[in-house]
Design a protein around this nucleic acid. Sequence first.
DNA 1: GACATTATACGATTTATTTCGTAGGCAATT
DNA 2: AATTGCCTACGAAATAAATCGTATAATGTC
Lengths: 123, 123
Amino acid sequence: MQEKPTAAELEVLAILWEMGEASVRQVHEQLSQDKETGYTTTLKIMQNMHGKGLVNRDEKRRSHVYAAAVSQQDTQESLVKTFIRKAFGGSTNKLVMQALGQSEPSKEEIEEIRAFLDKMENK
Amino acid sequence: MQEKPTAAELEVLAILWEMGEASVRQVHEQLSQDKETGYTTTLKIMQNMHGKGLVNRDEKRRSHVYAAAVSQQDTQESLVKTFIRKAFGGSTNKLVMQALGQSEPSKEEIEEIRAFLDKMENK
DNA sequence: GACATTATACGATTTATTTCGTAGGCAATT
DNA sequence: AATTGCCTACGAAATAAATCGTATAATGTC
């Protein structure tokens, strides 16, 4: 059972899911594009994540190479579950309609959801 | 622009949205059903919320009467917006499909979403 | 009126998270 | 081999949030 990532850790995970493998330096450069933050802060976060088992790291090289140890799918699943419970009293449909209602989806996006619903029903 | 409620504050809001008006005592009793917590903790949280403008309170009576000052709709909208950005890279559709995919919706629930999509398109 | 009960106010502590400074190691450059 | 630069480790400070203890005031009860 994976530990729940904090907000800062989730930002790092997002980058690792995108990049696959990355050094602290690389992650930090990505992160810096969105917000002002020190290098050792990023380092510390990633070290914490390693301690929690959220990332794996290869220490063979001088600058360690990190990769996500938890899947995006599993993590999002767990986050959504918690979010629905806490913010929508457990109702998935309320969340879904709230999300769609405020997002002004394009015709294509609506179609995508319809197709997804169809597929679900035929399972 | 309303301040964002913390996790504990959101729990209180949920109760107030449900009950309409309530004293600290009443809110605390609800809260206690889900988790072990002290009365003054609940009190403090609600005082903080009052300071932030998240609740209104009537001080005419000895035990103050509280009510939500922010709507459930607006609050959920803001929470969802943040959540989609932080956990799903801004993609509403990804959130929606993840949520539906893991919830095993009933036929009725699926129909409800379909109807909602139809209505959206004809707006 | 004294006493018990139940309120609010508020500071202080605890816990979680984020941030950063500094030390020490390794490697490339001169 | 000294200098410079980049790296990790790690403790500690800063921040945010939640929890609680204690003081004090209002109300009801005997």
